[in-house]
Computed example of a mutant assay.
Amino acid sequence: MSPMRGIALKLASVFLFTIMASLIKASSSEVPAGQAVFFRSFFAMPVIVLWLTLRGDLSTGFKAKRPLMHVWRGLVGVTAMGCNFAALGLLPLPEVTVLGYAAPMLTVILAALMLGERLRLFRMSAVLLGLAGVTIALWPRLSPDAWNHAAMMGLIFIGVSTVMRALAQIQIRRMVSSEETSAIVFYFSLTATLFSLLTVPFGWTWPGWAVVWMLVAAGVIGGVAQIFLTSSYRFAGAAVLAPFEYASILFAVFFGYAVFDEVPTASVLIGAAIIVLAGVLIIWRERQLGLKRGQARSNMTPQG
């Protein structure tokens, strides 16, 4: 184990995922979310195949012991990704990032309902604290003065994305007992590509070359970020790495301001601080309880 190397890879993956999200947001006025999902997934596959080849894991990457589990993970994950990309076109980048932090809170609840994990007072209190942070971040959007159709649709999209991400986390935790990490990574990109093609009848466009190259770059960068994320868990445990997921708010605030002239509100920043605190408490408690979630986390992207 080399914790510093693992942390460096984790931070690099978070940074690259934020760049990818910025590229998707920049192209959102030109292409629909389903088309963006296609580019993100299709152009990540060559990067992932090259990585598997260099690791000598290509054969295991193609081997799906339980194909239907990969199909279900792909369907849930692509829904989460598509809704996340749709939200990026309607809400500021920092706000989408902060609201996405609710996924681990929902995962704790779903793990109790679907996997039979015991939900004790400490973790339940942390979940409620996190949801309070989400409420604070959302509060200005809920006032009548701030009501507008685009913002409300954005909140609906990020809400669906967050629920789907939590379901994807539960599905991956079921899969890691029988499926190789390489297969989970490869088949998610493959199934996401195929499922995204189902959105062609709903309005794909012919964007200019500048937008095309942004989307291609988003796919390649997303693939590299996924590799860095997965590799980070080879050098450090989940309890060490998980808190660094929250560095994404710093990157999101930077890119939101520098690229899109977005300044996060005080409520978003306060809500983010509370959510991060709740998330760290949940991670600490899971470590105390000895819950093994590292493999599942290593296969999750911020989009699903």
Rank of each mutant, 00 (worst) to 15 (best):
V31F: 00
M20A: 12
Y187M: 08
A217K: 04
A252C: 04
V220L: 13
A137N: 02
R73N: 09
G256A: 01
A247F: 12
I274L: 13
G304E: 11
V163Y: 04
F228E: 14
I274R: 08
V71S: 09
R165C: 10
A236S: 09
F157G: 03
F254I: 13
R120H: 13
G237K: 04
L250T: 01
S231A: 15
G116V: 07
K63F: 09
R5F: 00
A238E: 10
G77K: 09
V31S: 10
A247E: 05
V71L: 14
I158H: 02
S13T: 10
G130P: 04
A26Y: 11
G89N: 06
G237V: 00
E95F: 05
A247S: 15
F195R: 05
S189Y: 10
Q295C: 03
M114S: 13
R173T: 05
A238H: 09
F42Q: 08
K25W: 00
T18I: 12
A44M: 11
Y246S: 12
W72P: 02
V31E: 09
V127E: 08
L241N: 03
M45W: 08
L23F: 10
S232P: 04
S231M: 11
F85Q: 11
A183W: 06
K292I: 08
T162Q: 13
G294P: 03
I249K: 08
T301V: 07
P144F: 00
M4Q: 11
A126T: 07
A150H: 03
W51R: 11
I184V: 13
V216R: 07
A192V: 01
I270H: 01
T79N: 13
A272S: 13
T79H: 04
V160R: 07
F188P: 09
S22A: 13
V253Y: 06
F15H: 08
I172V: 15
G100E: 08
Y187E: 11
F42K: 12
V96D: 10
F17K: 11
F254N: 07
A183H: 06
T107I: 13
L128R: 02
V240M: 10
V216L: 01
E117C: 00
A137L: 02
A111M: 11
T97K: 06
V37C: 09
R174V: 07
S161Q: 04
F42V: 09
I109T: 13
N299V: 12
T162R: 10
L75Q: 08
E179V: 05
Q226A: 09
W139P: 06
W139H: 08
L128Q: 07
M152K: 05
W72C: 08
G271W: 00
F62P: 09
A168G: 15
L128V: 07
P94W: 01
E95D: 10
G223Q: 07
L281N: 02
T230A: 15
T301I: 02
G219L: 01
Q295W: 03
L289M: 14
L291W: 14
F17G: 06
T193Y: 00
G34P: 06
G208M: 06
I136V: 12
A252M: 04
Q171P: 05
V31G: 03
I270A: 12
A273G: 12
A132I: 06
A239N: 14
P104I: 02
G100Y: 11
A12R: 06
E30V: 01
P264E: 03
A86P: 02
G56K: 06
I7T: 06
R234D: 15
M1C: 05
V280N: 14
G223I: 00
M164K: 10
L250C: 07
N299P: 02
T230S: 15
L128W: 04
A36M: 12
N148E: 13
